[in-house]
């Protein structure tokens, strides 16, 4: 429910498409993506910017969509986990995660995938130590991280950036 006094139209490019919807000005980018646009692949794990589950790309940079307002993303290019695969063909990072058993419950996974996509775009061949450092802003409760690091390393070795 939105109020005419506080609602606004928000237009942005999401996964390569122009999208717009009306939302309260206080709506977070995460809620806008999930509820306004129906893109529920972006998950909310803490809503205070620590766990990284809600990570999306904003003009190519990994950001926490729970800490941004949707209005701050006006006119921007947003990529979510739904925007990576081409049809049935997984994105190389997604494929490497699949091949590495990189997750269990999968709730945190979209955030890890998006963080990894951003990392490999900037640093195509990170060391294992560097991978651990760059993933340290994302929390996973299931895996103990090793298989995720394996997945990132595998993606890097396949030139996935």
């Amino acid at each position: 429910m939105t109020s005419p006094l506080t609602s606004t139209d928000i237009s942005l490019r999401v996964n390569g498409e122009e999208r717009s919807a009306t939302a309260d000005v206080r709506t977070t980018l995460a809620d806008f993506l999930r509820e306004g646009l129906g893109l529920t692949g972006t998950h909310l794990g803490c809503e205070h910017g620590v766990c990284g589950a809600c990570t999306v790309l904003l003009d190519g940079a990994a950001v926490r969509s729970c800490l941004l307002l949707a209005v701050q993303a006006r006119g921007a290019e947003v990529t979510t986990v739904e925007g990576l695969a081409e049809g049935d063909r997984l994105h190389p990072v997604q494929q490497a995660f699949h091949d590495s058993h990189a997750f269990q419950c999968g709730f945190c996974t979209p955030g890890f995938v998006m963080t990894t996509v951003a990392l490999l775009a900037e640093e195509p061949t990170p060391s294992r130590e560097r991978i651990r450092e760059c993933l340290s802003g994302n929390v996973c409760r299931c895996t103990g991280y090793q298989s995720i690091v394996d997945g990132v390393a595998l993606a890097a070795s396949r030139d996935a950036g």
Binding site: T40, G41, L90, F107
Partner: peptide, 13 residues
Amino acid sequence: DPRILTGRGRYLD
């Protein structure tokens, strides 16, 4: 994995 990796998993929220 494929549904979870592509954001098509269906969690409670």
